[in-house]
Nucleic acid binder design. Structure first.
Lengths: 169, 169
DNA sequence: AAAATACGTCAGTCTTGTTGACATTCCAAG
DNA sequence: CTTGGAATGTCAACAAGACTGACGTATTTT
């Protein structure tokens, strides 16, 4: 609560970007930007009985083909029951295949089918198009700063998951 | 779909930050960061029968005291039925007051009570603490870039709402 | 007087999160 | 080798929070 006065306790200069007002602006920017961020895939998905949860599953299965349910669970941060409902419909609809693990038969390895990859492409294209526009408008330096701040905002285990994904590619 | 090859069609240099892989990283960073962004308030709210929806309402009523229901609706981007459920509980619990408009008696002007302000402080402190840490780690230049990209990601009407809030302060 | 606006509410649906109970599989200790 | 515990995944039921549609009321505008 005392820290709320960071604009006063600072050594007078160069820390103005840590003002409560500046932080509040950042919070609101995050809120509005996230809406834009999800808007395009949401629009595509609506009416095809899928939602944002399906999109997330598809995205990460695409990035890590053959991943297990448990793996996906850790990345998505939901309960396995919640994920299972989503996976079940995706499997029923032929967008995802589930193979029993070779070494450990408890595991199910998940992969996108051709139809699944096609939908992934469609969603991904829409989302990347928005990102690309934003990046282009903002320029490379802004983008670097953008990523730096986002990484600093993550919880430690999320950051680990985030970095692990990059190494896998 | 053809645009997916931006790394090849580019003039060879300086546009590497527009690569599909870079965009994908940005998308994932956004996903993981948003989870961190909401984690602290969510933790505070859980167990007190409120959720993220209540937080959002409280946040924007705090920022624009005396705002109307319609106004809030436009900012939050939800239906009035959805917002009403949230507002009803907040009013019942004495965190928000609703006053009939002076000039236009159809309007209800919303304000936080002392208890409401107290909760807002608590939530806001937690969320700002995370932002402050992230900002400090990243530095002022990164923060500037962060905001630039977020603004570029917003839909036009969200951007208008976002900027309007800043002018009101 | 009629139409439009602002707000509240009731009823019903959908997505997506939750917990609890249960089956299968693996592994390690007795 | 067997048995018990841990890990993986599935099914069922429920809750929060979004949505639509329909309706009522007060007020303002035309």
């Amino acid at each position: 609560m005392v820290e709320g006065q960071s604009q006063n306790t600072s050594s007078g200069q160069a820390l103005l970007y840590l003002t409560d007002e500046q932080l509040r602006q950042g919070i609101e920017a995050m809120f509005f930007a996230y809406r834009g961020f999800t808007a395009d895939p949401d629009r595509i998905l609506e009416g095809m009985s899928y939602g944002r949860a399906h999109h997330r599953a598809i995205h990460f299965i695409h990035c890590a083909p053959g991943t297990t349910v448990n793996n996906l669970l850790a990345i998505l941060g939901v309960t396995k029951q919640s994920l299972n409902r989503v996976l079940r419909t995706l499997i029923e609809d032929g967008l995802v295949t589930s193979h029993v693990g070779r070494s450990d038969k408890r595991e199910r390895h998940l992969t996108l089918t051709e139809a699944g990859e096609a939908l992934e492409q469609q969603l991904s294209d829409a989302q990347r198009a928005r990102m690309r526009d934003a990046y282009r408008k903002a320029g490379p330096d802004a983008v670097a700063g953008f990523k730096t701040v986002l990484e600093a905002m993550m919880d430690d285990d999320m950051k680990r998951a985030y970095l692990a994904l990059r190494e896998g590619r």
